[in-house]
């Protein structure tokens, strides 16, 4: 599903954010990327959803070499990926319905198809009663569930989450993790960057630990 070959990412000449990363992640896996701040977790995820280009090395996603992909093809790759951020990245001036339906609007789906799918997905995350609300009317946990709904609505092959529980309390974290586990159980590969060791302990899965831009440990329980 994902193959990373000797990837190096440098933002400055003399320091590498990622150094010689070599990984294989299979279809349907649930993987934590962990490590201290500055270890390269977010950079790795950015490389996967093509927000950054590696300085060296190759990345294959679902058989496609994304490092050689033309710019015009990147949006189509992103539609196969769901991305969840710590700061939610919701459109605050749009309703929950509009936020979640946006990935389907992009594909020119029909209104009734969009409405049906949005309702189903928001029901999955328990927010079907908040369709017409705006993100800032919801709590942090609810906003993250909206972001997850937006990521899941396209039935993505891969769900990338960058510190999705970073700002949330234990109860909400549990709810969010249940959503990720559910998506993973339905066949989506989940890659979650987190430094929350409690989450990793409670929901044990393969852990890739980064330190100073290198893979320090790759452990499968």
């Amino acid at each position: 599903m994902i193959r990373i070959y000797n990837v190096v990412k440098r933002y400055q000449k003399d320091s590498a954010a990622l150094n010689d990363i070599d990984l294989r992640i299979s279809k349907g896996e649930f993987v934590y990327i962990t490590g201290p701040s500055g270890a390269g977790k977010s950079t790795l995820l950015k490389l996967l959803f093509c927000a950054e280009r590696p300085t060296r090395g190759q990345i294959l996603i679902n058989g496609q070499n994304v490092t050689r992909m033309r710019l015009s093809q990147i949006p189509y790759l992103r539609r196969k990926l769901g991305v969840v951020f710590q700061d939610f990245k919701l459109l605050n001036n749009r309703t929950i319905l509009e936020n979640v339906s946006f990935p389907l609007e992009i594909q020119g789906k029909k209104r009734y198809e969009i409405s049906k799918k949005v309702y189903q997905t928001l029901k999955l995350v328990g927010l079907e009663k908040h369709l017409q609300k705006h993100p800032l009317e919801l709590s942090g946990g609810e906003q993250q569930r909206v972001a997850i709904a937006r990521a899941l609505i396209m039935d993505p092959l891969i769900l990338l989450a960058d510190e999705p529980t970073g700002n949330l309390d234990a109860k909400v974290t549990e709810d969010i993790m249940d959503l990720f586990k559910g998506a993973n159980a339905r066949g989506t590969t989940v890659i979650m960057a987190t430094h929350n060791q409690e989450v990793i302990r409670r929901y044990p899965r393969r852990v890739i630990m980064l330190r100073d831009g290198r893979v320090e440990k790759d452990v499968t329980p």
Binding site: Y76, R79, K89, F102
Partner: peptide
């Protein structure tokens, strides 16, 4: 808003 649209696959 423009950045978010791009991140979720908008051409």
């Amino acid at each position: 808003e423009l950045e978010i649209m791009s991140l979720v696959g908008g051409t």
